[in-house]
């Protein structure tokens, strides 16, 4: 069995990749994918610790996260499509009608 510490390192690496993706990528869909990666990093933690702690709560939480992530992706893609229809771009640098 893979030791929990290694799973934790893996999930932290996923978290870091996701955060970097959100901060550096400029395509709205890629940002959305990076956010999904952060959610999955949390899921990996939940599942791994559910195993080590011998407690089912983590797995249940994982299922809820998957459901919520699906709903969120649906709404997110709808917003991106509405934006693309009006502006013809999904580059977040060009989405700057409002600035202080």
């Amino acid at each position: 069995m893979i030791p929990t510490s290694e799973v934790l390192i893996f999930s932290m690496a996923l978290l870091c990749i996701g955060v970097l993706g959100v901060l550096t990528r400029r395509n709205a869909i890629v940002i959305l994918m990076s956010i999904e990666m952060i959610l999955n990093a949390a899921n990996i933690n939940f599942i791994a610790f559910s195993q080590t702690l011998n407690n089912l709560v983590g797995q249940i939480f994982g299922v809820f996260v998957i459901v919520v992530a699906a709903a969120e992706a649906a709404v997110g893609l709808a917003i991106v499509i509405a934006l693309y229809r009006n502006r013809g771009t999904i580059n977040v640098d060009e989405i700057n009608l409002m600035k202080w």
Binding site: I31, V92, N96, M98
Partner: peptide
């Protein structure tokens, strides 16, 4: 502007 507001809020 509403599109843009939703995208920023969502992300």
């Amino acid at each position: 502007r509403s599109n843009e507001s939703a995208l920023k809020y969502f992300l």
